[in-house]
Structure formats: structure tokens, C-alpha cells
Design a protein around this nucleic acid. Structure first.
Lengths: 342, 342
DNA sequence: CTGAAAGCGCTTACAG
DNA sequence: CTGAAAGCGCTTACAG
């Protein structure tokens, strides 16, 4: 493991010159560059990133803050972790996985060690104190998810509004008019006010009203049992219902079973559309569920790109904040069909 | 953000003394310690981890190497990531998520920058060249999973042998004798030779033989469709079969459906035991699947502990290598029952 | 128990 | 285009 000094000596130049060719920070004559490059390969030089970090005050490390206590992070989270790490790696950065489980003071302790240049924040709520802390600490960050007021928040998020709207377009296009929504019951948990739920429910209600249709929202417990109960609740609220959207992967199958138990075959009598899911998750059911696929990979990639762009200053101080919204993409499978004739 | 020097000046001591109280590396008189501590809190001192890393040649960062191209990492992986990161954090370390997608040379490039003190290696195959590279590079590491020859490999892994054995004990205890095994078909993929599959199948065959029973192994494609086909294949191989183990979460439900289609009710006529799964995954099916739960959380925690123990030298040079094996834990639910009377 | 000082391996004005 | 030198903020023998 040769040092930069050794390379310099070997090439007969100053250490500054070596630094310049390593980083491309300054013009170096082709001849010198050649000698330095040769010395580097000969000695097997590898830039010490810690020394560079200390001298340049940039570690090229970004942190992905995730809630340690929420062991309910879904399958999208894994895709997200991996995509974020891969994109960071491509851009010459490293991604640290940072569990945050206590109050906002912990955040300061963590971030002030000088280890990270910036932060990606996961699982944002509509009102999130961590955002304020981050701003106070003047740490560059990008949020995955949006708070209620989004004006001066740099974020990347699923466009739940468009997703729900398009989901309803799809179902009404199939002739359905009595369409329910099944979402997780978060009342009283630490995740109350979780953006995806709030926005989806609100958009659903608004959009149904705009279409002159009657909204029916059912809250759902965990697993297949929760889904089965949701089926019962749905039909109790409206026995003539012919379709529903559900935003809860682990209960979708139970919902289908529950509908069957209530005498509704899927998709012949009743259509089920799984929101913010994936083709793979849908394929574990039978019939395979029609899904609106969450863009977890794109989100992870874009979040990291947006953050690093801000860090590298390509986006100037006065550059517009990143506001990226990506809808889920419809994947048709076997759980949706034309509305039954009346 | 006060520096150590500023704290020293403020407390009227040398910077060395401040370092000693910060790190507890040397005896300091109570009076001086008191003054230093006061100065630290007053100035809001926070140790710069990068400077410490450069001076001490220890970054307190460990890397979790995951295969970037394998987008088939299961739900256990997420638990694993989070647990590893949390435990590292508890022990004063940071966990970098490191995608490795190309050849073993990349490994050298990545690790020689001096950023990481040690490595946790995921998704180990029976013959894994990365292990050899790591040993060559003299990077301290712990593997999740085992190679074929385990003698000088520091590892933490699921005890698939015990898991399969206990699964068979459980099923035979219920009176089953004709018991199949459904596993993923990895032939021809980059994951061929993947430890969990190889060991599970081998143990199953051996154990069945030892019990005087006839083994039936069926390879299974993705999703519910794969599971449904597996049901057909199972019964084609042995129409009198009354139970099976399956190591493939996403196909377990399809398997149950396929059995039903073949006229076998679960669990009355046929028992299904899902291996290396989780209670939550089992609960998405109906009936809820009896599972052998993968100890993802424990594995992540133990892997990091073992690695850090080696790094901190608590385990001396000649200390025995960590060889940790944890079996999956049985969780009884609704997919298993006493064998039907003949 | 405490301090002076060298050193970790780079980057970056500054000067030429 | 190239170099001498200060400095990033710590740790750690060494001496007393």
C-alpha cells in the first residue's frame, strides 16, 4: 500500500502533483502525468480515503437514516437500500446504514462527528421533527416521502395522488363504480400520520367525490386474517361493491379469500387492485394480483443522485430543491376484470 | 463544533489529556477529568471521527458486502441489514452497505482505500472465491453462510441441518411418513451451489434414508404458479404423500392452492411446513402456514459482534474462529396437523 | 498523572 | 505547469 509521497518520490515530482493527477483538480502536463500514472500502477497506489476526507473536509459518505424500531419496513425498503447503495457506489460515494431510534437529540450526536456529508431520510411523516432538526444542523439532506408542507423540503416520493387516480381510472375503465379502499390501520401507532396512507386515503375520497361515486374506506389488520376481515367489512358497507384497491401487501391474499368466502369470485365478480406493491408480491397470490408497482429502485437511485448533486454543488445554493414524484406503474394480472353485468 | 485543541486550551490542559479522557485510554486524575468534561460540554465538543480514524488507523467502519446483481435477496435480508446496522451502532461502529457486482479484483480496489476495518460477507456459496480474496487481502471478515470446507472460515449461519432434522422430527411426530421437499430450482443460475439449498436437500435425503423413508425432492419455479406446479409434481411422484416441507416463501401459498386443486385439503389431508421463513410471511397465507422461522435478527447481530470482537482484539490472534450456527425456530400455525388415518 | 511533539496521508491556497 | 509548506483534528509513544 504505497502512499502518495512514495509515488511522488518514485516519479520524481512533488506530492502536490500526484494529488492533482489523482483527483484531476489541476492541469498537469501529459509527460508528468504519464510518469505519475506509471509510478502509481507500479507501486500499486491506492488513495487513502480517510486522509483525503480529513484534508478536504469531505468524506464522500452519505447516511441512510432508517427507523430502527419500525420492524415493519416493507419489501420496498430492501430494494431501496440496495439501489441507494449501488447508485452511491457508482458516483464514488459510500452509503452508511444509520439506525435512529430515539429522540432528535440523538441525531445531532450522530451527525456532528463529521463522518457524513449528507443524509437520506426514510419513512417521513406528515409532520416530522427530524426534518426541522436536520435543517437546524445545516446537514444537506433529501427526504424519501413528504411532509404536509413541502415548499422548502428537498424530497423524492411515490406520487400517491397520481397512483390512486390512475388506479381509479383503470377500475372505472373496466366499468366499476362501487369501489372500496383498504388501508392499514395506523391509528394510535407511532406511524400515525404516515404520508402514504394519509395521501392515498385523501386522494381516494376526493377523486371518488369528483367522479360522483361513494367512497368506502376500510381499515385492515395484519396478515391474511386482516384481509379476510376487510372483505367482510367492505361488503357490509356496500353489498353491491364490485372492486377495491388495497394498500397492504400482506393482507391482499386474505382479502381475496375473504371475498370468496362471501361468495365473490375474483376477478369474475370482484376486482382487486393492489397499490404500492410489486409484480413479485402479486405473483405469490392466486390468481396473481394486478398491482400498481412501487418504484423502489428508481426512488433509491434518484434520492441518492439528488443528494450528491447538492453535495457536489452542481446544483448551486439557489438551485431549486429536488421535488421528484414517481407514480406506481400498473401491472395487469389476474385479479381484475370488467365489472359484472348488473 | 469545538476541536480537541480548543477544549484543551479552555480546560488548561494539553490536548493529549483531552484525548485520554475522551477515549478512556489512560488514567487521568478526577480533578482534571472534571475540568475537561466541563469544558467539553460547555464548548459542545464532538470528537471528529475522521481525524481519529487517520491518527489511530481505525475507522470503526465495517462493510456489509452484498451482491448487487442478486435482486432476489429475500425478506430475511432486510431484517439482517437492519439488525447488523443497529448492533454496529450500539458497539460504536458504522455499517456501510457495499454492493459488489463484478469480479474479485473489484474487492481489492474497494477495500484498499482504508475506509473499512472489516467486512461481513453475505450470500456465501459452497465454493466462494471472494473468501479467498478476503483472506489474501488480510481483511478481517465474518461470513454469513458457509463454504463447503469450513475449518478456517469465521462464520455465522443458519443451521440448516438441524432445521431440516427438526422439521422432519415434527412431521413424523404428527404421524407423517411420506414427506416431500420443495426447493427452488437454481440450476444454471449464478446462485447454483448456494449453501442453504445444497445443505437442506442433502440433510433431507440423508435424514429420510436414516429414518427408512423415501425422499421426494421437487424443484420449484417462482411465485404461486411455481408452487402450484410443485404440488402436482409432488403428488405425481408419490400420490400417497401426506406432508411436505418447502423452502420458498413466495411459492408456499401456491403450493397450498395446488394441493387443494388436487383434492388435498391443508392441513386435514396434507401438512405443509415452510422452512427458513417467518411468522409474518406465514400469516399472509390462509390457513396461516406453520413455519420454521429464520433467525435473521440474531444472525445480523451475531455476525457484527463476532467481527467487532476480532477487530477489537478481545479475541486474540490465536483465538478460535467464530463458528456460530442457529437453527430456525418452529412456529406452529394452521398448515400442519396429524397425518390422516390410512 | 500530564505534556511536548511527531505523525497519520492527504488537499489546497500561494508563489513562482 | 510545478513545488514548498501549512494544515485537516486527532492518537500515541516517549519523557518526566
Amino acid at each position: 500500500m504505497a502512499t502518495m509521497q512514495e509515488v511522488a518520490t518514485h516519479a520524481g515530482v512533488s506530492i502536490a502533483t500526484v494529488s492533482f493527477v489523482v483527483n484531476g483538480t489541476k492541469r498537469v502536463s501529459p509527460a508528468t502525468r504519464e510518469r505519475v500514472t506509471a509510478a502509481m500502477t507500479e507501486l500499486g497506489f491506492r488513495n487513502n480515503v480517510v486522509a483525503r476526507a480529513l484534508a478536504s473536509k469531505r468524506t464522500r459518505i452519505i447516511a441512510l437514516l432508517f427507523p430502527a424500531l419500525e420492524h415493519r419496513l416493507g419489501g420496498t425498503a430492501l430494494t431501496f437500500f440496495m439501489s441507494a447503495a449501488s447508485r452511491a457506489s457508482d458516483l464514488g460515494y459510500h452509503l452508511i446504514l444509520w439506525p435512529v431510534d430515539t429522540g432528535p437529540d440523538e441525531l445531532r450526536d450522530l451527525l456532528s462527528g463529521g463522518l457524513v456529508d449528507g443524509v437520506v431520510l426514510m419513512e417521513v411523516k406528515m409532520h416530522d421533527t427530524r426534518i426541522d432538526r436536520l435543517a437546524e444542523l445545516r446537514v444537506p439532506f433529501v427526504a424519501i416521502g413528504r411532509t404536509a408542507d413541502v415548499d422548502d423540503l428537498p424530497f423524492v416520493d411515490i406520487d400517491f395522488e397520481t397512483t390512486v387516480e390512475e388506479g381509479l381510472d383503470y377500475l372505472t375503465g373496466l366499468g366499476h363504480e362501487r369501489i372500496g379502499l383498504v388501508i392499514e390501520d395506523l391509528e394510535g401507532t407511532s406511524m400515525a400520520g404516515y404520508g402514504p396512507h394519509v395521501r392515498s386515503e385523501r386522494t381516494y375520497r376526493d377523486s371518488m367525490a369528483r367522479r360522483g361515486l361513494e367512497p368506502v374506506v376500510v381499515f385492515c389488520g395484519p396478515g391474511a386474517a386482516g384481509g379476510r376481515q376487510a372483505a367482510t367489512d367492505l361488503l357490509a358497507a356496500d353489498p353491491a361493491m364490485t372492486a377495491t384497491m388495497i394498500m397492504k401487501d400482506d393482507s391482499a391474499f386474505g382479502l381475496v379469500r375473504g371475498l370468496l368466502a362471501e361468495g365473490r369470485r375474483v376477478p369474475d365478480d370482484f376486482s382487486v387492485l393492489s397499490l404500492s406493491s410489486s409484480t413479485e408480491a402479486g405473483a405469490t397470490s392466486e390468481p396473481a394480483l394486478t398491482t400498481m408497482n412501487a418504484p423502489g429502485h428508481e426512488l433509491g437511485t434518484l434520492a441518492v443522485e439528488a443528494l450528491i448533486e447538492r453535495l457536489d454543488g452542481k446544483a448551486g445554493q439557489d438551485a431549486p430543491l429536488p421535488h421528484v414524484l414517481l407514480p406506481c406503474i400498473l401491472h395487469e394480472a389476474g385479479s381484475t376484470a370488467a365489472a359484472p353485468a348488473r
